[in-house]
Amino acid sequence: MEITLNHYLAVAAVFFVIGLMGVIMRRNLLIIYMSLEMMLQAANLTFVAFSRFYSYPESPSRPYFNHIDGQVFVFFVITVAAAEVAVGLALIVALYRLKETTQVQNLTTLKF
């Protein structure tokens, strides 16, 4: 059986949904953050899969080659995700100093 684009997209969708379920279900801020990262990674997988399977002829001498822009985008996404994790974890540490907890049910200051 040949592995096609659809296989990769389906796996990425399942991984994304697992991350979504983690964000909605779990109460621990750190686990929620990991689930967010999982959703980002699933998007990365679709980017790479599309860049591998989407191809076009540029000219007759260069018949078909895969598109590299998807991989460049993944590069950017990884960079931004790393910066985001650093800032987010710093915020979690600051929150822990203030409230002594990382469980979201105890952080109800903004609840109305």
Binding site: V11, L30, E37, Q41, V48, R52, A82, L89
Partner: peptide, 30 residues
């Protein structure tokens, strides 16, 4: 999976940055 999709550079970046740096950060915070 990235390696299977011929994205060797991104696989290396993934292991170095995400599995290496970000995970160490998470474990430190925990």
């Amino acid at each position: 999976l990235f390696i299977m999709l011929d994205a060797y550079f991104l696989a290396a970046v993934q292991i170095l940055v995400t599995a290496g740096g970000v995970m160490v950060l998470f474990l430190f915070i925990i």
